[in-house]
Each structure stands twice: as C-alpha cells, then as structure tokens.
C-alpha cells in the first residue's frame, strides 16, 4: 500500500475542480489510456489571468490528487506566474508524493504548459518534435528527461523513471538515460558500440539473430507503446513469419503496421530482401 499523505488522500477523495469548462479558452492534454494515466486540463484565461481551471483525469489516486492540486494552485495566477510553476510545487502542495509517483506531478506541469501553448495559438507540440524520443514505451524525449534532472536534482536512473516514467517499460533506454544523466552531472560518457549497420553478407544463423535483435530492440517496444505486440513465429531464408498480439490483433491498420513499419525496419537493419508475413493462426 502506498504511503500517501493525508492531503493526497483528501484531494483524491474530494477532488476540486473536476469536469470540463464550456467556455475554456485553453485546453491541454497529456498522457494516454495506454500509458495508464492521462490529464485533460481546461483553463479560462481573462486578459493574462487564469480565472478558472477544471480537469479530467484517468489515473491512480496520486494522478487525480495532483490534478486537483494543480487547478487549486493556478487559479488566480497570471499566465507568466503559472509558467513558473514546477512539478515540485504540485508535490509540495500535497505534502509530498511517494517517489515512484512523482511522474504524476510532472504530468500536471506538462498539461499546464500544453494548455498555455494552446491559448497562445501555438500548435499542440507532440513530444516527438520537442526533442529526441528516448523512451519509446512511454514516449519521453531527451528534453523532458534533462529538464526533470535539472529541476529536481535527480541523481540516478531510477529517479528519472520515478519522475518521467522513462525506462520503466522494456528497459531498452536505460543506457541512454545513464548517458543523459552523466552528461548533466558532468561525468564522461561511457563508450558504447551502436547497433551495427546491416553487414553485406549474412549467414542464415546471423540473419536470424539479427532479426531477433531488431525485433526485440526496435520493433516490439514501439508496438507495445500502443498496447500491441509481435512474436517471431518462424523464419525461412529472408521470409519472416510473425504473429501480432495485443491491440494489434484488433487494429484495422495492422496490415499497414506489418508492411510499413515491421518490414521496413527489418529491411533497414537486417537485409533489404526481407519479406514479413503474418503466420497463419
């Protein structure tokens, strides 16, 4: 059982400002059903002052309490003041959050920024364009990670996961997180050989091993990010038989996924002659 403060419990059981605002002129949305938490923030901004704020949240108790706290904090603030609000302010307002739940406060801060961008008429910037995508499972970019490190004085990869969720899925990006952390903390990065480009001539065994590696490292994390998954069923020279799992099985565009994404990725990394087929059920 989580050790929530009384204030977290109170804001979870009696959340303030739940719902939508019909006359909102700023809306920010972050998260997704697949991620396990999502927040939609509605603001009414008059002049440059936030006169009303409401939220809808899908998530755990601390996500709901963080959303409630956020709306209480920003009501009456000017836009400029609101932009200075950090995730730590949200956590402090609640008397602290369990460290594994700090990402809930970060979600609040991100929704606020998204709403203000929306109010300013700036495009709703997707994470991908805000920097390099590092954690594919939870869609976290290097900029978000570096910011969390700086604003919260993070010292370990585990803390990065607590604050941003990055690294909490397949774990593939943990090395990347360590590098970002080392760079921030002024440590020399550890050298690492990147995934080698496709060699010219592969034996069947080498090809199969490389297919497995790319499937595990590049393809599965990406599909899992959307609640889907893929399994290697068989391989016959350059024909790869796979089975789609999870959300992919009910997804109308799974055909496109196979050809446009899975096959292309394997051709890029392994062999340009690769053909991907869905294994018969």
């Amino acid at each position: 059982m989580w050790e929530y403060t009384d204030k977290v419990r109170e804001h979870f059981l009696n959340p303030r400002n739940v719902g939508s605002l019909d006359d909102a002129n700023a809306i920010g949305e972050v998260g997704s059903l697949a991620c396990g938490d999502a927040l939609k923030l509605y603001l009414k901004i008059d002049g440059d002052r936030i006169v009303d704020a409401k939220f809808q949240t899908f998530g755990c108790a601390s996500a709901i309490a963080s959303s409630s706290a956020l709306t209480e904090l920003i009501k009456g603030m000017t836009v400029e003041e609101a932009l200075k609000l950090t995730n730590r302010d949200i956590a402090e307002f609640l008397g602290g959050l369990p460290k594994e739940k700090m990402h809930c406060s970060v979600m609040g801060q991100e929704a606020l920024e998204a709403a203000i961008r929306n109010w300013r008429g700036e495009p709703a910037v997707e994470h991908e364009h805000e920097g390099q995508l590092v954690c594919k499972c939870f869609g976290v970019t290097d900029e978000q990670i570096v910011r969390a490190i700086r604003e919260n004085g993070l010292k370990t990869v585990e803390e990065i996961t607590h604050y941003t969720k990055a690294g909490g899925g397949c774990g593939e990006c943990v090395g990347e997180l360590q590098k970002l952390l080392d760079a921030e903390l002024g440590k020399a990065p550890v050298c690492e050989t990147p995934l080698a480009a496709a060699p010219k001539k592969l034996t069947n065994v080498q090809r199969m091993q490389l297919v497995l590696k790319v499937l595990e490292g590049e393809i599965r994390p990406r599909l899992q990010q959307d609640g889907g998954d893929i399994e290697l069923v068989d391989m016959d020279s350059t024909t790869v038989y796979v089975a789609l799992r999870g959300m992919c099985t009910s997804c109308p565009s799974s055909r496109l996924t196979l050809e446009g994404f899975v096959e292309k990725t394997l051709r890029d990394h392994v062999d340009e002659n690769i053909v991907v087929k869905e294994a018969a059920a």
Binding site: S32, L33, L133, G139, R222, G228, T257
Partner: peptide, 14 residues
Amino acid sequence: EAEAALGKKPGCSC
C-alpha cells in the same frame, strides 16, 4: 472524441 484522440500516442504505428 477524447478516447480517439488520447488513446493514440505519437508515433502510433498500429
């Protein structure tokens, strides 16, 4: 609408 919009994440390949 929110389900359709928020259920999808950037880079959705499904």
